[in-house]
Simulated assay, not measured.
Amino acid sequence: MARPKAATENDAPLTDAAVDRKALLSETLRRRIVSMELAPGAVVDELALSEEFGLSRPPVRELMRQMAAEGYIELEANRAARVSSMSHQSLRNFFQAAPLIYIATTQLAAANATRGEIDELKQIQQQFRDAIEKNDVENRVLFNDAFHLQIGKMAHNPYLMPSLRRILIDHARLGKIFYRHPTTNDMEEDLDKAAHQHDEIIDAIERHDASAAGDIVRAHMDLSRRRITEYVAPVGVDVPLAY
Rank of each mutant, 00 (worst) to 15 (best):
E120S: 11
A194K: 01
T28C: 01
D130K: 11
S87R: 07
V60L: 05
Q127D: 12
A113Y: 04
D203L: 15
D136A: 14
D238I: 10
A2H: 05
D192G: 09
K5C: 00
A77V: 02
Y231I: 00
S26H: 13
A17C: 00
Y243S: 14
Y159W: 09
K134A: 15
V34Y: 11
A131W: 05
P59Q: 07
R57K: 13
I202L: 14
R180C: 03
L168F: 03
R129V: 12
N78F: 08
L29Y: 04
Q89G: 07
A195T: 06
D190R: 12
E37P: 01
R227A: 15
S211M: 13
R21C: 03
F147S: 03
A131F: 05
M67N: 04
D170H: 08
A210Y: 02
P58N: 08
I228A: 15
A98G: 00
A7W: 04
R30L: 04
R30E: 15
S56M: 02
V141M: 11
E138I: 15
A48S: 09
V43T: 14
M64Q: 07
N144Y: 08
A39N: 01
A212I: 11
I103H: 00
A97H: 04
N185Q: 11
E52F: 01
L160S: 12
N78Y: 03
S224I: 10
L223K: 00
R31A: 14
D20Y: 02
S56A: 13
L75I: 15
A77H: 05
G236Q: 11
R218C: 01
R32V: 00
H156A: 14
E70Q: 13
T105E: 07
T8V: 03
S56F: 00
A113M: 07
R3S: 06
R129E: 14
M161N: 03
V43P: 01
D45G: 01
F147C: 06
V43Q: 10
A18R: 13
R115Q: 15
L63C: 08
S224C: 00
F53N: 03
I202N: 09
A6E: 10
D215E: 14
I202K: 13
R226C: 01
E46T: 11
I228T: 12
V217C: 04
E27T: 09
H171D: 11
